[in-house]
């Protein structure tokens, strides 16, 4: 199975409002990496919401890992969701938990041993530069710090699909590049990555195929082969080491 995400004539409307997404059809292959772009309000977050099953489409068929999501029984959703990492545009961190506990959440929910959890979470928090904020609650953190916690929570369980909604919105260029390398490495290890962003410089630098949404319609812009960027070698190496140390299960 190489098609990990498949949309067939999918439409979405909120309540009785207009159709926010119309006739969306595309296939994403396993271990592909796409940017999702489009003007504000075009429906990027809405499309992601459909892809991580936060919303049901009003028409069409969505398949994840080769299975029609509409026919999935409720009891199988957790298993599917554990293979998907999501970084929300509004982070959705749990305010009463520390940074550590927020990032640990997917592992705890999956029943991992605390000793392992401690090692993985600490390692990842060090990597996103929050080693001094592990026991701090997100409510007292800056937007950029919260964003990195949200990203760490999305990648900690080594998901098969990773969605990130504006992951570089609140961080400086240096951290943005570093986070992009983290996604890149996850992608090299087999994760399908979709990143919704407005950040032109990142789109330019990382040169990946693009899903463009405009007035409810989606077009896929493939990449011209000769144009692929050269990676920032040192960051890549460190990200690879980190991710390999976070074992898949």
């Amino acid at each position: 199975m190489t098609e990990v995400i498949k949309f067939e004539s999918v439409g979405l409307r909120y309540g009785l409002g207009p159709e926010v997404l119309q006739d969306i059809s595309f296939n994403l292959e396993t271990a592909s990496f796409h940017f999702l772009i489009g003007p504000s309000g075009a429906g990027k977050s809405s499309l992601l919401r459909l892809m991580y099953l936060a919303h049901r489409q009003t028409r069409g068929i969505i398949s994840l890992f080769g299975r029609d999501t509409a026919s999935l029984p409720r009891t199988e959703l957790p298993k599917l969701r554990r293979r998907i990492g999501v970084m929300f545009q509004d982070f959705r961190l749990l305010p009463h938990l520390t940074a550590f506990d927020n990032v640990a959440l997917p592992l705890r929910v999956a029943g991992m041993k605390e000793t392992k959890i401690k090692r993985y979470v600490e390692e990842l928090l060090v990597w996103v530069g929050l080693e001094n904020h592990m026991d701090v609650r997100p409510t007292t953190m800056s937007g950029g710090q919260q964003q990195r916690i949200a990203i760490a929570r999305a990648v900690i369980a080594r998901p098969k699909i990773l969605y990130a909604d504006e992951p570089t919105g609140n961080v400086d260029d240096r951290i943005a590049a570093r986070l992009m390398h983290l996604f890149d490495e996850l992608n090299k290890l087999g994760t399908t990555v979709i990143i919704a962003t407005h950040n032109e410089s990142i789109i330019q630098e990382f040169r990946r195929p693009i899903l463009r949404i405009e007035s409810g319609r989606l077009t896929v812009v493939p990449l011209d082969k000769d144009n692929k960027s050269s990676d920032n070698k040192s960051n890549v190496k460190r990200a690879t080491q980190l991710l390999e140390s976070l074992s898949p299960e």
Partner: peptide, 16 residues
Amino acid sequence: KQTIEVLHFVGAHDDF
């Protein structure tokens, strides 16, 4: 509600 939603997204079973 928000917390419950997040728990669902990270793959928590209803039982959890």
